[in-house]
């Protein structure tokens, strides 16, 4: 599997660390309540199909990358820097 880091280009999957769904970007307000926090941290759409998840270019530039990917075919559809996605209010 190869992932295109927006800064470094196409790299082997070995250079990246995976952490989970890109909902991680949407940290709730501290006072949002137990349900919201439970949902944020634990519950997942977990689609069999296209998903967005978080990859860290650990053996590269240190960027967190949002990867749009298909969980069934493993096709990588697109990548973007997490900080840009965050800026877009993703």
């Amino acid at each position: 599997m190869r992932i295109t880091c927006p800064l470094c280009g196409a790299r082997d999957r070995r250079e990246f660390y995976y952490s989970g769904a890109a909902v991680a970007l949407d940290r709730p307000a501290p006072e949002a309540g137990a349900e919201v926090w439970d949902d944020y941290l634990h519950n997942r759409d977990n689609p069999a199909g296209v998903t967005r998840d978080m990859w860290y270019h650990e053996l590269g530039c240190g960027s967190w990358v949002v990867v749009t990917r298909n969980t069934v075919s493993h096709e990588v559809i697109g990548t973007a820097l997490a900080r840009d996605e965050k800026g877009r209010g993703a």
Binding site: M1, G20, A21, A48, R69, T71, V72, H74
Partner: peptide, 10 residues
Amino acid sequence: MYASYAQRGN
């Protein structure tokens, strides 16, 4: 170490 529904790995 990545979410997957493929019964195969890399």
